[in-house]
Design a protein around this nucleic acid. Sequence first.
DNA 1: TTACTATTGCGAATACATTTGCATTATACA
DNA 2: TGTATAATGCAAATGTATTCGCAATAGTAA
Lengths: 140, 140
Amino acid sequence: MAIVDGKVRNMQRKTAQRAAIEEVLRVEDRPLGIEEILRYGRILVESLNQATVYRNLKLLVEQGWLKQINHPALGTLYERTGKGHHHHFHCHGCNRVFELPCCFLNEQEAVPAGFIVEDHEIFLFGVCPSCAVAVGSDIH
Amino acid sequence: MAIVDGKVRNMQRKTAQRAAIEEVLRVEDRPLGIEEILRYGRILVESLNQATVYRNLKLLVEQGWLKQINHPALGTLYERTGKGHHHHFHCHGCNRVFELPCCFLNEQEAVPAGFIVEDHEIFLFGVCPSCAVAVGSDIH
DNA sequence: TTACTATTGCGAATACATTTGCATTATACA
DNA sequence: TGTATAATGCAAATGTATTCGCAATAGTAA
């Protein structure tokens, strides 16, 4: 607690809604869009509202716990920070995006002479292991 | 010319506007956004309107002469088709996107076992040769 | 030239993601 | 507990990209 301008100012409060949003992102452990966060979050807090999700995601990004990514096929996704450099695999079977740990790109080899590479992003597209199994074993 | 339902139906007409849009994309020879296409196009056809640009881009995409790409930092861009597989370099000096010809990624090596890669996109970020020269020689 | 109608320019309309205002709810300190 | 106020739910508002309606313009075949 703190006093500002003669008034009591509480700090950020712990709410079931924010806890639910964090939980969803922690459990899924992959980049999620608003729609998914809202859907999974409502399993934990039935009343969860879209505006609340937006407000909390914004907060969590500002606090550095989340970062926004812009996926070329899926638009805005949110993922937890602190996982180091990685890339994104989008499975068209289940429509999920996975984070692939290692980096296999030599930046300077990737461009003609004269270009200076400071950063890169790789988006892969295909079928994830569980969907591959489903297709391979004729489970449709 | 053709008769459909008893009425005369002309084929697509050649207009200065569409020619200008095509010209811009041909001359620049790199992915362009609507704003840039409109700006450069107006040098050729002063009256060029945004709605006209949208209509023609849609047409050219349908005809396969253009394709849309979704750049994570710049949004929708249009580039000419038929250039083969390539990636995109975004220069933060001039804000232009360049197409880099070669593909230096072994798709299957890029993912853990179990993932099936069907396609990929690489976005590089840095400084292009002409901006690098400008910075290096203290031209600001 | 002329007639027909595809295409344009303009502004209004739409689509979609995100934000905001406000009354209500609920957390946390006293 | 009680109180102050941060946070929520809801609906309306906003922002941005894209499309559409329509009268005016301009290609194209005859």
